[in-house]
Computed example of a mutant assay.
Amino acid sequence: MRRGWFVALLCALVMLAVVAGVALSRLKKPGTPQGADTVVTTVTTAPSASTAPEPDVTTSRPKSVTTRKVTATGSTTTPTGSAPDGPAISYFRVTGKPSCPSGTNQVQYEGDPVVLEWKVTGAEKTTLSVDGPGIYAEYGTKDSATLTFSCGGDPGSYQVHTYLLTAIGPDGTTTKKLTVKAKVNEITTV
């Protein structure tokens, strides 16, 4: 009975020591130069036939793969991944759906404008073009625009407008197109 209690206490102390060691290893060590770059590289290896695989605690990773993290400091270390050159568009989307005018010839309801929003990285500015070439306006890298959505055509058909976002940066440009449509409503004569 005493031995079981002692083993449980010993296991708890070992776990506490491991947690404390991990926490301390994440702290900056004294003597590390100010502004030193830290690069974390993930090394994935398959176990050799002569060694048994380590126990896997993550259910989303195959049991035959072991992952170790290696941390290096110093300004001569380069990251293993490569960043994309030039601007990148994180998102360009419709946040306010447009609608066409409706009602009667006596009481008419205005349609709703289209609201667009976007976020880009690696750019200095963005421009927006509507239905073809030519710049409608210049914007920031994380911005939005509320634009009138003009409608025409036969009732029941759809009015379509195309919006082109261009991200402009020192390393080039990137574009993304959105096509937005709204149903043309019948204006009833009373």
Rank of each mutant, 00 (worst) to 15 (best):
V160E: 08
D131W: 07
S150K: 04
K176S: 15
S144L: 13
K183T: 00
V184N: 04
H161V: 07
A137E: 14
L178V: 08
K125F: 14
T146V: 01
D143S: 13
K142C: 02
S157Q: 12
D131V: 10
T141C: 09
G122I: 01
Q159D: 01
T173S: 15
S129M: 08
E124L: 12
P170G: 14
T146C: 02
I135D: 11
K181T: 08
P113Y: 05
A123C: 12
V160R: 14
K119N: 15
Y139D: 08
T179P: 01
L128I: 15
G152N: 13
A123E: 08
Y158G: 01
G132H: 11
L164M: 14
V184K: 05
K176L: 09
A145K: 02
E124H: 07
T179Q: 10
G156Y: 11
S129Q: 09
G132L: 12
G122M: 07
T189S: 05
Y163Q: 00
S157W: 11
G152C: 04
T174Q: 14
S129L: 09
H161D: 12
E117V: 09
G132I: 08
V115R: 11
C151I: 06
F149H: 11
I187D: 02
G134L: 05
L147A: 02
C151A: 11
L165A: 10
L128N: 09
I168Y: 13
N185L: 00
G132C: 15
P113H: 09
D154E: 13
V115T: 14
F149T: 03
I187H: 01
E124W: 02
S144H: 15
G152D: 11
D171G: 00
A137I: 08
G153D: 02
P133I: 02
A167N: 04
I168S: 11
V130P: 06
T173R: 12
P133W: 00
G153S: 07
L128D: 09
Y158A: 05
S150C: 00
T173E: 15
D131N: 15
T173D: 15
P155L: 07
D112Y: 00
W118I: 11
I168L: 10
T121L: 10
T121H: 12
G172W: 02
I135W: 01
P113G: 10
K125H: 11
T121K: 13
V115H: 06
A167D: 04
C151H: 04
L147I: 11
I187T: 00
S144R: 15
K177W: 10
